[in-house]
Nucleic acid binder design. Structure first.
Lengths: 178, 178
DNA sequence: TTGCTTGCAAATTTTTTGCAAGTAG
DNA sequence: CTACTTGCAAAAAATTTGCAAGCAA
């Protein structure tokens, strides 16, 4: 799944585009490539980068991320958490199941076939598909069990119920302990 | 595409869940249902709501959005703009092509069939699919023409090149006028 | 050298929260 | 009445920007 991306080639590409190969950029890119499967966000990336070089600042991390995204060398993705995550684009697409309530993620198989299918959707639109990760939102079986009586009400379950929605979670409101 | 959602039924659902039907909530929900296809963000929603009742504050808009999302009555979506957009969940999924460079969006057909396909991806994972909108990222033909020599470099084209990436856009950096 | 880059701190933007006052049920 | 809700203002959190100093090419 995480078949290594060539670091030197990646760095070279930056240079070919006319950007300078600086220390901070090097560390940031190395970190990104060493954590291919993790979908780091800016803060997580920052923390890892600072283990290597504590001088690198937030601004540089953000600027480098934006540069890479602008060059198509990095994808910005969102799990609706209120901030962005980033992934090094792979040759091919990836497909995940994402539980909207507990955040659990499952990686799907046969990605090549699925990608071909998605590509076929573009038809004669003139669009060219960019490899990306699809997060298919759903409810996992664990959370489904937690969903009380009114099955379609889809109230968040009490176990993980992380993030913003927690405040209105019926389980939490009742005081039934998180 | 935007087959009306029943306002009273929607409001009723809130009450059934044990939440109060207040003026501000009413206005917010009305506005949401009157702009089904627009994928409003919090600020846009706020502005529309204030045309109806200038007393409603940002906090209430955010709190109501969060409440509805928590109840599964609203989906939070992201176009990687740095903030969230919201959509009233439809019975069925929707599929868009989204140009990563100019932001152009095209609505795809045969959504029922595509949805069935996506549902089949869930296999025996135990997940239940939640109706959602898929934004398939790509490059539209207009932007493809703007992509200079190094075709795979994918530098943003100069025309619309909106949002955060603009600063590093090769076209803009050169001073070649946006 | 030249001018792209960086770090820092301040500024923005988006979203959340505390709290007294308002109000639906 | 009761306690869920609201508006306001302050607080947080995420991201961006101005600018003098640093450094790659």
């Amino acid at each position: 799944m995480d078949h290594a991306v060539d670091l030197e080639g990646y760095l070279e590409r930056l240079k070919e585009e006319g950007f300078r190969l600086t220390g901070p950029r090097r560390v940031i890119i190395e970190t990104l490539l060493e954590n291919l499967g993790r979908h780091l966000n800016a803060r997580e990336l920052m923390e890892l980068v600072q283990e290597q070089d504590s001088n690198v600042g937030f601004a540089t991390v953000y600027r480098t991320l934006e540069l890479l995204v602008g060059l198509g060398m990095l994808n910005r993705i969102s799990l609706e958490e209120g901030f962005s995550r980033y992934e090094v684009p792979d040759e091919q697409m990836h497909f995940h199941l994402y539980c909207r309530f507990c955040g659990k993620t499952i990686h799907l198989d046969d990605e090549k076939a699925k990608e071909a299918l998605v590509r076929s959707w573009m038809g004669d639109s003139g669009f060219v598909l960019l490899p990306q990760t699809f997060e298919v939102a759903g409810v996992c079986s664990d959370c489904r069990q937690c969903l009380a009586d009114g099955a379609e009400a889809l109230a968040p379950c009490g176990k993980l119920c992380r993030g913003r929605g927690a405040r209105f979670c019926r389980r939490h409101r009742g005081g039934a302990e998180a």
